[in-house]
Write a protein that binds this DNA or RNA. Sequence first.
DNA 1: TAGATTGTTAATCGATTAACAATC
DNA 2: TAGATTGTTAATCGATTAACAATC
Lengths: 211, 211
Amino acid sequence: MEYDIIMRLAQYKKVLIKLRSMGFIKVFSDNLSDALGISASLVRKDFAACRLTGKRRGGYQVNELIEKINLLLGVSGEQKVVIVGCGKLGSALLNYRGFENEQIKVVAGFDPNPQRQNKDSGIPVYPPEEMESFIKKHGVKVAVLAVPEDVALTMLEHLQSFGIRGVLNFTPAPMRSSAVCNVENVNLALEVEKLFYLISARKLRKENDPE
Amino acid sequence: MEYDIIMRLAQYKKVLIKLRSMGFIKVFSDNLSDALGISASLVRKDFAACRLTGKRRGGYQVNELIEKINLLLGVSGEQKVVIVGCGKLGSALLNYRGFENEQIKVVAGFDPNPQRQNKDSGIPVYPPEEMESFIKKHGVKVAVLAVPEDVALTMLEHLQSFGIRGVLNFTPAPMRSSAVCNVENVNLALEVEKLFYLISARKLRKENDPE
DNA sequence: TAGATTGTTAATCGATTAACAATC
DNA sequence: TAGATTGTTAATCGATTAACAATC
């Protein structure tokens, strides 16, 4: 399935859950297109590609859509995640609330600094030596990478060999997906730079073309 | 200028800076295409669109490229940013090291919780009441939004009225750019969900189509 | 039936790549 | 000159939208 569809599926799901809580039983492609700011054609096309069917007059069943989207997104109960590198950013992610709604569960963190380790209260933080056994024992497939840039690449290789199949990379070093492991890069500095550019571009446009 | 070009300009810049430190004086579109994993045509097209010119035989001047890209990206000295909402995530961003290299400077944080406020050491954190005067006084144009989801939208409106023109939104509520303000959404839960989907999709593909 | 909405095909649009003439 | 690389035009590709027949 195409890459962009996944993002939209997750967005559809969010809207659908909200609609369900409002008492909606069915939705039309038109409703969802409004909510996401895309065309109704695209909604129907996405659904067709995912074999989510509706009725020609009666739209789509909200409940059915939510269930099937969960299946498609691979959401089968809790989705376990570990945080690798528990500095400021890592430890913030350790307790990030936004994960809760989405059935994402942070099960452990790893950090070489003993002061950051903590096996008892809350989400445990272990030394890196325990990473391999923990990941294998709990069958963790997804890791958030928040280590210093210089160790990012070697850490990625370790994680892959431990069985990790998806990595959310917060280090400034962009990394590519391999044959066995998907990598998503979140480059905060790049995003901020983009904002500054967009602002100056907008200013220039205004000055040159003040229609 | 097109949206995607900006991202690539920032990436070109990073590679170019590394090349310069290695002693490179000139680069060819072929070099940069390898580094970014795109075609050489696209590199040349990007440069042409940004009026970055080279010589037909001698490639592009590294120094000249870096300088001109900085101009294009609106990088004129320090780029000031404020953090709105200094919970776990916000305070991590307050001291995020990845910003330093890119001339991004976090000048202040804002939070209603007095325990998080701190006007003396390090980067100051002020109560929200001081936000307007601070932003106007220092001419801050970009804000990082890390407040709870339910106040995100009203906060965005406030920020716009204070003069903020770019927002990096870490709340789970996706928000759209307005006529005066660019919004970049960073939805961590969505990114993690995507990874889980990619993994299960990959597994399915392997099972069904084991060539 | 008449009306409305899906499912699908054709058209459009934008981004990327290929190709090549211009030229250093 | 011969060779190499840019700048640019044409071709391709994929994603999105428009349009409409099928049908509930």
